[in-house]
Amino acid sequence: MTIIAQKPHSLTDVPMHYCPGCGHGIVHRLMGEAIDELNIGDKVIGVAPVGCAVFADSYFACDMIQGAHGRGPAIATGIKRSKPEAIVFSYQGDGDLASIGMAEIVHAAARSEHITVIFINNAIYGMTGGQMAPTTLVGQVATTAPKGRDPLLQGWPINICEMLSALKGAKYLERVAVDSPQHVMAAKKAIKKAFENQVKGIGFSLVEVLSQCPTNWGVDPLKSLEFVRTKMMPQYPLGVFKDEGAE
C-alpha cells in the first residue's frame, strides 16, 4: 500500500481557516503540489494578501511576507529583484488584484516581472462580508449592490486575463476553475506551468482561478459549484489567453 495523494510537503500542518467549501484551500493545495513536483520548495518566497487569504503565510511552508491590500505584485517585485534566484509568488483575490491593486498588477505584467501570480476570482469581497467586487457579475447581489449589480450604476465586471493579454510583458495567462475534479486537474497544470515559467525565466505568469465562495454567495457548497459553472463561466470563459513560453 502506498500513499498516492496527500497533503503536499509545501503546505504546513496548520488547518486552514477558510469557510467550508471555499476554493482557497484547493488552490493552496495545487500550489503546494506544483512546488513539490518542481522541487523548488527551498527557493519559494510567497506574498500573502489582505483578504480571506491573509493568513496564507501559516499554510505555506516557505518564507512568506504579508502585504498591504493590492500591493502584492509590487512587493513580489522588490523580493524578486533583490533575490533573483528565489521563486516568488503573489497570491491575491479579486478586490485586491482587480480593484485596489489594479495599477500594481498591470505594471508588474507590463514590466514582465519574473513572478507567479495566483489570482482568486470569486466575484465578491469575502473577508469584509460580501461587498461588490470589480468582478461581481451583472445582476449579482452583494451587500453594496443590494439590488444586484446594475451596470448603469456600478459598471461592468472586469475580465483580468483578457485585459492583461493586451500587454506584451504578460507571458502566460490562463483562467481555470476548481468546481470539478476535471477542472481542478486543469488548474493544477496551469498553476504548475506558472511556476515552471518562472524557473525557466519566461516572464510574468498569472493564473486566474474561478473559485467558489459559498458563504458570501449565500448558497451551500454544492450549489456554489453550480454558480461557478452557470453564472461565472459565461462571463469568465476558461482557457489560455496568452502563452508565449510555448514552443
Binding site: 500500500m1 502506498t2 497533503k7 488547518p15 476554493g23 484547493i26 475534479p181
Partner: peptide
Amino acid sequence: IGCTMCYMVCPDVAITVIK
C-alpha cells in the same frame, strides 16, 4: 477505486488516498 477525485476537490486537504 482510489481515483483521488475526493482528494482533488477537498478544500481542506483533509483526505489521504492509499492504494
